[in-house]
């Protein structure tokens, strides 16, 4: 009997168990990655192929355009009178493809080439999400500071619990809340509801962002060593001064990560936006009216029967992903610690 087997009678079995467990863990990891790779890959392949210069600079263009001439003049028989009660009676759908001069008429409308772009939605998403981040950031960071620096009081416990509940709440509920509180609220000056607006969307997204920012800020501030706080206090700093000059700068990259997560979540939210900003097919920059957003373009035109509009939906999904990535990278560069740490 060899020394090995006499000392470790289970050696073979343990080796096999180890190999099996390792295999299981690897398999589970692979399973976890597959959906991510599929989604990102599909969006990149299908959405990426929709991209061209026009896609970024142009606003929405319908797959076909109906003019008054189409309705009254260009009827196939040429002599049927225009009937106001049935304006489309004379319309020949086959003749409507292509808006620009020189486009071939008579093709199948379901084969119309993709037209237009999502510039309006990029602008809308940036406006609404940035406004939401601007509102949510100070609230969330200050609340996180409170939770981390004054952790054990009844207010902190309630706020922490509320944040956890709110960050797990379905976003449609947040949308309905914002709809009732803002969109449906009566404007005292006009007696009418305020209606759909970019601001209503920003408020809805704020509700979603604040808990994320608060809890991430709290967690990263807790990671700052107690010794660092003591060092600042021992220099004669007050609690707020040490928090803002030492504790927050030490944890800055973590706080930025929290804000970025909130931005990414807000930029991708669709349900609250359906109920608050409604969407738009034209370029709108005023936050007091319905405004376009990338996820709304995706939502609306994925279901469209026109392939050209489907392309728009995939393209905007791709642009949304890239936008979040780009903002992430830019902010990271901007807040990078430039000091040598070695």
């Amino acid at each position: 009997m060899s020394l090995k087997s006499s000392q470790m009678p289970n050696y073979q079995r343990r080796k096999v168990t180890d190999a099996i467990m390792r295999g299981l863990v690897l398999f589970a990891t692979a399973c976890a990655i597959v959906p991510l790779v599929l989604i990102v890959g599909y969006v990149v392949v299908v959405g990426g192929s929709a991209l061209n210069w026009e896609f970024f600079t142009d606003v929405y263009q319908p797959p076909m355009t109906v003019t008054t001439m189409d309705m009254i003049g260009a009827a196939p028989t040429g002599d049927a009178p225009f009937d106001p009660n049935d304006p489309f009676a004379n319309l020949d759908p086959e003749a409507l493809i292509g808006a620009e001069a020189g486009d071939e008429k008579g093709a199948n409308i379901l084969e119309a080439p993709a037209r237009g772009g999502v510039f309006h939605a990029i602008v809308g998403t940036l406006l609404v999400t940035s406004l939401a981040v601007l509102i949510a950031m100070p609230i969330g960071i200050l609340a996180g500071v409170f939770l981390s620096e004054f952790p054990d009081n009844s207010v902190a416990i309630v706020v922490r619990f509320a944040c956890d509940v709110l960050s797990g709440a379905p976003s449609i509920i947040v949308g309905v809340t914002a709809y009732i509180l803002v969109v449906n609220a009566t404007n005292p000056n006009t007696g009418q509801p305020y209606g759909f607006s970019g601001i209503a969307g920003a408020i809805a997204l704020t509700f979603l962002m604040v808990p994320t920012i608060t809890r991430t800020t709290e967690e990263v501030l807790k990671l700052v060593p107690e010794a660092t706080r003591e060092a600042a206090l021992a220099m004669g700093a007050t609690t707020w001064y040490s928090t803002f000059t030492v504790v927050i700068p030490t944890a800055l990259s973590g706080i930025v990560t929290g804000v970025m997560l909130a931005f990414a979540r807000g930029a991708g939210e669709t349900a609250p936006l359906i109920l608050t900003v409604l969407g738009s097919n034209v370029l709108v920059t005023g936050l007091l009216q319905p405004i376009a957003a990338l996820p709304l373009v995706t939502y609306r035109y994925t279901e469209s029967p026109f392939p050209s509009e489907n392309t728009l939906a995939w393209g905007s999904a791709f642009v949304l992903m890239m936008l979040v990535l780009l903002v992430n990278i830019l902010v990271r560069i901007a807040t990078r610690n430039r000091l040598r740490t070695h």
Partner: peptide, 12 residues
């Protein structure tokens, strides 16, 4: 002033 057991310089 105070100097602590473990060096605790700021990340500055």
């Amino acid at each position: 002033g105070m100097v602590f057991q473990r060096p605790n310089p700021f990340v500055k």
